[in-house]
């Protein structure tokens, strides 16, 4: 039987996910029917199982933040379309989990592959090599992204502190 303490911890995790995006509250309606897993591309190529991930958040199991699984989601929305419940938005929910993982520093290998794209976006306003965006607009983008993770990644690429392109 769960002690008072344990149940407090459980809801802590869930609450953080809702604080990030209030729509995430809807996962409480999940009836574990598993429809979301049937046609999920991430499940076809990895151990990713969205039904189990929802369940783990509901019981407060934070171990999923450390695992590679949450980084396999294609954000394709197939699951949300097929889910019998009205407001469950899996891509947003996954983004919140990734956000939590970021906060805990569990995501470094993922970042490495993004350095080049971040650099181009902040220096050109596009993820491609060339751009004709006026300098003022590029400055705006840099400003919008001030303090965002993308900026740190960009700085890391300049200082060459172990994050390769």
């Amino acid at each position: 039987m769960a002690t008072k303490n344990e149940s407090k911890n459980n809801w802590d995790f869930f609450n953080r996910i809702i604080t990030d995006v209030d729509e995430n509250w809807n996962i409480i309606q999940c009836i574990s029917c598993g429809k979301c897993v049937g046609d999920c591309p991430a499940s076809k190529i990895s151990d990713f199982n969205i039904r189990k991930i929802v369940e783990k958040v509901l019981i407060g199991d934070e171990s999923i933040l450390k695992e590679e699984d949450i980084w396999y989601c294609f954000l394709c929305n197939k699951c949300s379309k097929i889910c019998p419940k009205e407001g469950i938005n899996i891509p947003l929910f996954i983004l919140s989990l990734r956000n939590e993982a970021f906060k805990k520093g569990y995501n470094i290998p993922q970042l490495k592959k993004y350095v080049k794209m971040c650099k181009r976006f902040l220096e050109n306003g596009t993820v491609m090599k060339e751009s004709d965006l006026p300098t003022e607009r590029i400055e705006e983008i840099k400003k919008i992204c001030e303090f965002a993770r993308i900026k740190y990644l960009h700085k890391a690429s300049k200082k060459n502190i172990g994050i390769e392109e």
Binding site: F102, F121, A148
Partner: peptide, 28 residues
């Protein structure tokens, strides 16, 4: 448009920008 930037969807998907920053880039 000469002023149009990239939609930044890829950065939102990787949690590299916040939803407000993403909304600002698109609204701009």
């Amino acid at each position: 448009s000469l002023e149009q930037s990239c939609c930044s969807g890829t950065f939102l998907q990787r949690n590299l920008i916040t939803r407000a920053q993403f909304a600002a880039i698109n609204e701009r």
